[in-house]
Simulated assay, not measured.
Amino acid sequence: MKRYLTIIFIFLSVIFIISGIRLDLYWSGIAGWGLAFVCLIFAAYYSKYIPNERKRRKSKL
């Protein structure tokens, strides 16, 4: 499940940015970009759980 969190957080950041721009309220753009930035930090953190194909091939040899 952790390998899919990177993709989930990237999609959440896109949704936050689009909704922040579309709402057109006073602080919605800043809040949207802030939430998107936090989601991208989490996406970068969970990217270490994506399996590396090179390590799998070397371990099989």
Rank of each mutant, 00 (worst) to 15 (best):
G32R: 05
V38M: 12
I7P: 03
F16L: 06
F11S: 08
K2E: 12
R3V: 04
Y26T: 15
F37C: 15
R57M: 11
Y49A: 14
I18V: 14
F16G: 03
R22V: 10
N52G: 09
P51M: 03
L35T: 10
K60N: 10
Y49I: 03
V38D: 14
R3H: 00
R54E: 15
E53W: 00
Y46K: 03
W27G: 14
A43R: 02
I17E: 11
N52L: 03
I50Q: 14
K48D: 08
I8N: 08
T6N: 06
R57H: 04
G34I: 09
A43N: 07
I18P: 08
G34Y: 02
G34W: 02
P51S: 10
E53M: 02
L12D: 09
A44T: 08
I10H: 04
I21L: 14
G29N: 11
R22W: 09
I50L: 12
G20I: 09
W27R: 14
S59R: 11
C39N: 03
L35V: 10
R3G: 08
F42L: 14
L5Y: 03
I8V: 10
W33R: 05
E53T: 01
Y45F: 09
I17R: 04
K2Q: 11
E53F: 04
K2P: 09
Y26G: 09
D24N: 13
I21G: 11
I7Y: 02
V14M: 11
R57P: 05
A44Q: 06
I10S: 01
L25N: 14
R54T: 08
A31V: 12
F11W: 09
P51H: 05
A44N: 05
S59C: 06
G32I: 02
